[in-house]
Design a protein around this nucleic acid. Sequence first.
DNA 1: GATATAAGTTCCAATTATTGGAAGATTATG
DNA 2: CATAATCTTCCAATAATTGGAACTTATATC
Lengths: 252, 252
Amino acid sequence: MSDAKLVGSDRVLAVLAELARHPNGIGLEEMARAVDSSKPTVHRALASLRRAGFAAQNGHGRYLLGNEFLRMAFAHQEARPDHVRVMPVLEALCDRYGETVHYAVLDGTSVVYRSKLDPPAGAVRLTSVVGGRNPAHCTAVGKILLAEALRDEDAVRAWVGDRTLERPSERSIGTAEELHAELVRIRDQGYATDDQENEPGVNCVAVPAYLTSPTVPSGAISVSGLAYRTPLRKLVNDLPAIRAIVTEKDPW
Amino acid sequence: MSDAKLVGSDRVLAVLAELARHPNGIGLEEMARAVDSSKPTVHRALASLRRAGFAAQNGHGRYLLGNEFLRMAFAHQEARPDHVRVMPVLEALCDRYGETVHYAVLDGTSVVYRSKLDPPAGAVRLTSVVGGRNPAHCTAVGKILLAEALRDEDAVRAWVGDRTLERPSERSIGTAEELHAELVRIRDQGYATDDQENEPGVNCVAVPAYLTSPTVPSGAISVSGLAYRTPLRKLVNDLPAIRAIVTEKDPW
DNA sequence: GATATAAGTTCCAATTATTGGAAGATTATG
DNA sequence: CATAATCTTCCAATAATTGGAACTTATATC
């Protein structure tokens, strides 16, 4: 967001985004500071949002995201075609392994999580969230999709460009050379792993998902585990069974 | 929404709401018809939404809800205090019974679902959704909360007012007298049931939840079951165990 | 309970943004 | 390739938005 002041609907959407960052609610003055606008202007923006059901006011006059906003988002997600298609697979994997499972797609240099399923039992939650993103080069879902998309070292170098690859953990890949070598391994073995590369303490394996075509993956499916209770070796040993579950549900 | 044409930010929010109704995407002209506006106007509204990350355009020029919108909503929900507080209970119940569980609060004459957890295994999905609502008088969560809030027949009559209580199924309560009698029973037994009253084929039991006070319920927790595989009698027999799980996680 | 402070709400003159018909550009279809 | 469908841009005319000031309500303090 530039230094330029927001106007009209851009400002209302900024207010909506700011509301979402405050699960405990926010006051009018704090919101006005956050979006760099006067109180009457923010008051009118909140009035618009309230009319749409996207904001509400609690008993103390503080503003909260409204029910309708959450209903819209959750209902939309339930009806999303790729979500509907992938859920039987995610349910089967989640039920079988008792770990968090994801479906993600490439989006630029990141992966975006389209679907996520947590087991009911299991105290610790991962930081991924539907609609959220992570760098593709240090996630299992990202690497399996890059293995398909970047078939040689020139393609890998072009993809990296002049960026410095971010390294969320010490185990993260940091250079085009390392990434290329990893993608060669992945193509050879047909799956990708994340050995605490994206998030310390979290392991993951991923395979491609063919939701819309028998030959071009639409995304990738992963099974994650907390390193202390689900070593990567165990996840890797389960790959034949994981593939079988994923393939069994293919529409091909 | 009145017949009056929407302007400015109200229109942008209407476009956002309409986008959410189209998980397969929507074209510009269809959207213009849906929000009763000209194409250039809707085009600018979509441009605002795209700047905020709330809309995106697929390869065919059709518009979809954007990743950022879903991320915001899902991340917000994960951080919502009542959701954080109730999740350990819902996880324990869902793991134990392998059925869908909810936490809901009263909102006017409806209940609003604040949290929902589905078991990984189980083919059929219920229609409830986070942020969504149902009439209080024909849901287990609604009835247990009304039992607490409406202590005598006058209060029940006042609550019904001059409304005709909607009856989503033949088993739904339809009069103030019937509702009062039911609430007396519920107060006596300390739990509520939904014997396919809100949704054909779905049974449910609910108990009050004391997330923020030891004496005033903040909402209700329910365990639902499909009638064909989880008879209501079985859910009722499980109530002592359900209560134990709910109480064990109380912060009191 | 009275007073002060904090926060939300309304007013309205001045200013800026929005609107939609028309036209242009791009994509899809036969 | 021609045509139709759909998305995108332009700009004169029109309407909405803005924020300082003031008002109202709620909360905190003495």
